[in-house]
């Protein structure tokens, strides 16, 4: 069980790196969908064979929303905005990939200073979660297109979720579902905003949204 969970976590790290280095929106969305499914597997893996109804509902919710609904919503937003690639990001793709790779030892070093939380938590879990959070923040600050910023937000959210399902067992199902619902509505509302931005400005470059400043 442990080796299996580790494998899933390594796959999550690889999807993070792919997000940092890829320019095509379509591919990024699919990578993120795959990461959503991996998130469901992590949730099963950390339970160590103790599958309650609670876990099953949660996993079904995660896979349905992060693996199926988000990709469809985002692909539609991409199609309506009429843009296929991220162009000229503030930090180039090769550099982003390098930063993303370096973020992994950084995440491991940072989390090695934290107190231990018990033997049941896979040692890779917390570094993986922080790596996803760092990649998400990188995407949000270094990309021009509104769609990529939403992808970054989702990567960040995934990192936080990995941390949550790994370390916070038996939280209230109501609250977990509430969190998923919130993220879902957030992406939905952001999708609508992107649609309005592309109609109003004929582009979705957020660095050109600069009417409001001091």
């Amino acid at each position: 069980m442990q080796a299996w969970t580790d494998l899933v976590l390594i796959l999550v790290i690889l999807t993070n790196l792919a997000l940092a280095g890829l320019s095509s929106f379509g591919t990024c969305v699919r990578v993120l969908a795959f990461q959503g499914v991996l998130l469901g597997l992590v949730t099963v893996g950390v339970q160590q064979g103790d599958l309650s109804l609670h876990t099953l509902v949660l996993v079904a919710g995660i896979v349905a929303i992060k693996g199926l609904v988000f990709p469809r919503l985002l692909l539609r937003a991409v199609r309506e905005a009429g843009v296929r690639h991220e162009v000229e990001p503030f930090i180039g793709f090769a550099t982003s990939l390098l930063i993303g790779t370096l973020a992994l030892p950084l995440a491991m070093w940072l989390t090695s200073h934290l107190p231990r939380v018990g033997p049941a938590v896979p040692p890779l879990l917390i570094p993986t979660a922080f790596h996803a959070i760092l990649i998400g923040l990188l995407l949000i600050v270094s990309r021009r297109k509104a769609v990529t910023q939403v992808l970054g937000y989702l990567a960040l959210e995934n990192g936080i979720f990995i941390f949550g399902v790994g370390l916070v067992r038996q939280a209230t199902l109501l609250v977990e579902m509430g969190i998923l619902l919130d993220v879902f509505v957030a992406v939905f509302v952001m999708g609508i905003a992107i649609f309005h931005i592309s109609r109003e400005f004929d582009h979705i470059d957020t660095d050109r949204l600069s009417l409001l400043k001091e």
């Binding site: 923040l137 949000i140 509104a146 910023q149 939403v150 937000y153 960040l156 959210e157 936080i160 957030a186 509302v189 952001m190 905003a193 309005h196 931005i197 109003e200 400005f201 957020t206 949204l209 600069s210 009417l211 409001l212």
Partner: peptide
């Protein structure tokens, strides 16, 4: 366009913060 820009900043910055 101005209110749209404000809305986008609000949505993204606050969502990331609250995450």
């Amino acid at each position: 366009s101005r209110s749209l820009e404000a809305t986008w900043k609000y949505l993204l910055i606050c969502s990331v913060g609250i995450a």
